[in-house]
Design a protein around this nucleic acid. Structure first.
Ligand SMILES: [Mn+2]
Ligand SMILES: [Mn+2]
Ligand SMILES: [Zn+2]
Ligand SMILES: [Zn+2]
Lengths: 147, 147
DNA sequence: CAACTTATCGAGAGTGAGTCTCATTCTGCA
DNA sequence: TGCAGAATGAGACTCACTCTCGATAAGTTG
């Protein structure tokens, strides 16, 4: 949506010798508009692109650090804009329908968690890159409908 | 391993009207001996069971709350004993080779995290069941060999 | 604008982790 | 020992995902 995101994407793609084609722009628009991880089915429907093009370009965008692939609780992979573009955050993951919603921790909690994980990684000689925190449970709709 | 685990497994299986057969016992033994999430390839090799039996019985054990299926950083699913049996913990996930290692947070950090997540879930009307925290990075071997 | 070069597109074939089928074997019980 | 129901495992099958390759679009040079 905002030109900031598109400019950042264009820059990242160029340094990875790729073009910011209309197909790739549409993928970024769809992901930005959703504001939460989407399945390939969602992305195909919203973008109107061919299945193979969706997969190929998601791969290109992931390679360039623009898109992030994550595994849900169902059989489908989900895609979202990378944290470098939308900021660090976590997810509410519904164990019933598989939906994922973006959520952010209070900065002080996030900071203490980072410190604890750094200590832990140093002790295990593990070169930490990031962390992923999913809150697993029933989403609002599934909890009320008992689905 | 310890009879505690086998007793608990037998009890859980019985209340889910399943038998604790030799194949299922071997799966539990393999998972307990590993002490970290294993791929189906690992489990087949270590147990000597047929592929279909491994998948079917892992499904039975998962249904009974004895085994937990989790998605790694690669294309392979991984299996471990459920937290009800081995206690709550998290994982160091290698983004290079996909290996996962068990790790535990200091109790005070874990407690504050729980409180923060509860507040967050209440605000979003999300019925929280548990949380999953993966530390992503390079494992000791991959970091040193540059793999 | 025409001719050329290079990257992208997309329909369709192919791959393989994971699931299902079913004839055989095992298990519990009388 | 005989029977009923459950478990086993080789192999067929599914389907999310990847790869192929001719068509097409986008730069580039003169
Ligand atoms: Mn997200
Ligand atoms: Mn574990
Ligand atoms: Zn839901
Ligand atoms: Zn590794």
């Amino acid at each position: 949506m905002s030109g900031d995101v598109h400019a950042a994407v264009a820059a990242r793609l160029q340094s990875a010798d790729g073009r910011y084609t209309s197909a790739r722009r549409r993928l970024v628009e769809v992901l930005a508009a959703a504001g939460q991880p989407l399945t390939v089915g969602d992305i195909c429907r919203d973008s109107g692109l061919a299945l193979s093009s969706v997969y190929r370009n998601l791969g290109v965008l992931e390679e360039a650090g623009i898109v992030h692939r994550l595994a849900g609780h169902d059989e489908f992979a989900r895609f979202e804009l990378a944290e470098e573009l939308v900021g660090h955050h976590h997810h509410l993951a519904c164990s019933s329908c598989g939906a994922m919603t973006d959520v952010r921790l209070p900065p002080d909690v996030e900071a203490e968690l980072d410190r604890a994980l750094s200590r832990l990684a140093r002790k295990e000689r593990f070169a930490i890159e990031t962390h992923r925190l999913d809150v697993v449970g029933r989403c609002r709709t599934c909890a009320s409908t008992g689905g």
